[in-house]
Simulated scan of single mutants.
Amino acid sequence: MDYRKFLGKVESEVLPYFGGATVDAASRRLRVSTPPAPGWWRFDVQGRTATAREPAEPQGLDGLPLVRGHLWGSRLVREGAVAERVQLLPEEEPPRFSPMRARRWHDGTLVFEGLEFEGEAEGTARLMVEEGRTLAEVKAVPASLRAAFGYAVLEGVSGALGIRFAPAEVRGQVLSVAEQGRPAAEACLRRLAAGREAHVREMETRLRGQPRHPERQTQGVSRVERALESAGARLLATRRLGNERLEVTFGFMDERFISIVETETLQVVDAGICLAGSDRQVTLESLPSVIREAIQDDVLVITRHA
């Protein structure tokens, strides 16, 4: 049999493109030859290379897991106050706190499917946040809407105080913020800032006086990528540092993390999250599981932001 004729076979497939160098089909990841604008595209697929041919209508969503919740910015807030980024939102921005449904694509990404009918609760929540009030006395508000309201209050206070936050850092407090308003939001964010400052002081003390060595030329990017993928994370970028170290930026549980690791061993030097001085007990491969546990226990404090 002449297998060469199969090597040149071109197939057509409609897929969502979220950006980056790859696109995910049902059973495999494909390299994008020329990245198009994010959106739904009909791709010509040859081997493991996909070439965008033309925009297309969404296909293949019906059989995927359905996720419902309320919109906060570009995130869908669902049960458990989990706020996940949603890709390919409509060009016309939906109203704040819109009830929405999305589908979980094959790589775990949430893809917008459509808006749902609103009740009175969504309009009331919009009015309350605009007037600086809380949901303490408002009844029959779905938990996902209460959480989205809490995130919105935190977002406003964050801008005023200049203290950044990731949803996973404050997930355990958003319902209290929705009930108590700005004072609870300020207290939550100031605790985060204090934790970050303590971490920075600790890292400066620990690293002070350590000998510096010539920077190694190898980045070991493939090893970094394999270590993260085996833990369910995705490598976003690397940057060589002095003293035989790498800065690694990766995505995990819909958040972005920046860690510093030893180039040769991938032992963590600075996890980018507060580990109470235990950073060096962790490797890059085990770090995502530590992050997952911190999120589940509501103790995550991210100490490195881009």
Rank of each mutant, 00 (worst) to 15 (best):
Y3A: 10
K9N: 07
K9L: 13
V10F: 02
S12E: 10
V14W: 01
P16N: 06
G19E: 01
A21V: 06
V23S: 00
D24C: 06
R29Y: 00
R29N: 01
V32Q: 04
P35E: 04
P38S: 07
P38W: 03
G39H: 10
G39K: 03
W40V: 10
R42F: 04
G47H: 14
R48Q: 15
A50T: 10
E54K: 08
E54Y: 09
A56L: 10
A56H: 12
E57K: 14
E57P: 05
L61A: 07
L61T: 09
D62F: 13
D62C: 07
G63I: 13
R68S: 08
H70V: 02
R75Q: 02
V77D: 02
G80A: 00
R85L: 00
Q87K: 00
P90Q: 00
E93H: 01
P95E: 05
F97H: 01
P99T: 02
A102L: 02
H106R: 06
D107P: 01
G108F: 07
T109V: 00
V111E: 01
E113K: 02
G114K: 11
G114Y: 05
L115C: 03
F117M: 07
F117K: 09
E118T: 08
G123T: 06
L127N: 03
V129H: 02
E130A: 03
G132M: 03
T134A: 06
L135P: 07
K139G: 13
V141H: 13
A143Y: 07
S144P: 03
S144I: 01
A148C: 14
L154G: 11
S158W: 09
G159T: 13
A160F: 12
R164E: 15
R171P: 09
Q173A: 14
S176G: 12
V177G: 08
R182A: 15
R182P: 10
A184R: 09
E186Q: 13
A187W: 08
A187H: 11
C188F: 11
L192N: 15
R196H: 12
E197K: 14
E197Q: 15
V200W: 09
V200I: 13
M203T: 03
E204L: 09
E204F: 05
T205I: 07
T205A: 13
R208I: 00
G209V: 08
Q210Y: 04
Q210P: 03
H213M: 05
Q217H: 10
Q219S: 12
Q219T: 14
R223H: 04
R226E: 15
A227N: 08
G232Q: 06
A233T: 04
R239W: 12
L246P: 08
V248T: 11
V248H: 10
M253T: 03
D254C: 01
D254S: 10
R256T: 14
F257K: 10
S259F: 07
E262A: 05
T265E: 01
L266T: 02
C274F: 10
A276S: 01
V282D: 02
T283D: 09
L284W: 04
L284Y: 04
E285I: 02
E285K: 12
P288N: 06
S289K: 06
I291M: 09
A294L: 10
D297E: 13
L300W: 03
V301P: 06
I302L: 15
R304V: 15
H305M: 13
A306R: 14
